Simulated scan of single mutants.
Amino acid sequence: MRIQTRQPREILVIVPARNESLNISACIEGLTRQTYPSGKRVVRIVDDHSNDDTAQIARAAASPHAGFSVVASPPLPPRWVGKCHACWVGATRDIDDPPEWLCFIDADVVAEPELLAAALQHAEAQSVDLLSLAPKQILGTWTERLVLPCGLYCLSFCQDFERLRTDECRDTSVTGQFLLVRAEAYYAVGGHRAVSDAICEDLALARQFKQHGRRIALFGGRELLSSRMYRDWSSMKIGLAKNLVETFGGSCARPGLHLALSSLPGLLSPYRSWTHGDVLEGRHLPVAHSVLRLPVREPPSDFISRARAFSLFRFGTDSCFHLDIHSAL
């Protein structure tokens, strides 16, 4: 089924990319196949000082397509984090007539053809200023299959999504892999410049929106976009630590989480054979949970059923934290 907004809006898609040579081609290809009118969308890939061939691959993939461009992020100013700066550059450089919507997509995301059309239609129907969609997560290596589901479910358990949805709560929850924002609201709250030193820039930006009275929504988008976030333990450790530190106490939690995550490969290696099955069947996650020793609202015996119940945000009938397991062994 093709989904289109009744009156197509101008949209600028921004893809910050740093050392994404394995992902950027598929990301751009997905954006070239969008059903959203090509005359109403511009795609800008911002190379964030990659030291691999991300920029060259991006230019080769983007050059045949009208409205696609690759720009280099300038030197990082003081008190700026790289991704924040790349997003801000993409949203402000050479903008004479600002679009109505800005869409920030991570370079490891692959978009289905209906993504932009469906997301725009839903954002306008719900009158939200920031719409975040959680991708279907693709897992390959045994480490990904053991650790990442546990990390995602821990994040789900330790956040009260019903409370976060209320206007009274000052906090919120989003995923930075896909953020669709009204341009007027983005510039009014200061955009990424207002959170320039934030490590979890997606959450910081969403909090900025909410503090200014803007509406936010998080939904699962498993039929619209997919992502393989990590391909090795080193990148997984950094990514999980960034998000778990934010969830479990800020900088005070960083040393303990770093130690726990650094120890996981050795602790979990005896269970490598488990990954030939589906790690979401329920018999494996309690073990990973016991190794992490992270608090949850329910005992491990009820881990899977309660995790499903905590998937409160839905796009259609899809769970926000659905995982597809693809073996690369």
Rank of each mutant, 00 (worst) to 15 (best):
P8I: 03
I14G: 02
R193G: 01
I45V: 11
L285Q: 08
G239P: 04
L139I: 08
R170N: 08
A60M: 15
A217Q: 11
C84H: 10
S262T: 13
R215S: 08
A107Y: 00
R59C: 11
Y186S: 01
I325F: 13
L218G: 05
A60H: 12
I11Q: 01
K40G: 01
F178E: 00
A260G: 08
T175Y: 05
A118W: 09
L152R: 06
N19F: 02
L22T: 03
A194Q: 06
P75N: 15
D96H: 14
D167V: 07
S263Y: 09
R231N: 10
S234F: 10
G213C: 11
R165S: 05
A91G: 07
S319M: 13
S226R: 12
V109A: 06
V181W: 00
G220R: 03
T275W: 04
Q34Y: 01
L268C: 10
F209T: 07
T172D: 02
A123L: 05
G213H: 11
C158R: 04
F219V: 15
L218E: 08
F157G: 02
R214E: 14
I24K: 00
I138C: 03
E10H: 07
C158I: 00
W101F: 12
C252K: 13
P78Y: 13
E168L: 09
R93W: 09
A111V: 00
D197Y: 04
D324C: 14
K210M: 08
S63C: 15
P299M: 06
M1P: 10
L115S: 06
S311W: 11
G249I: 08
A183D: 04
C87N: 13
D129C: 06
I14K: 01
R215N: 07
W88Y: 11
Q211G: 15
Q34R: 07
T175V: 13
A328P: 05
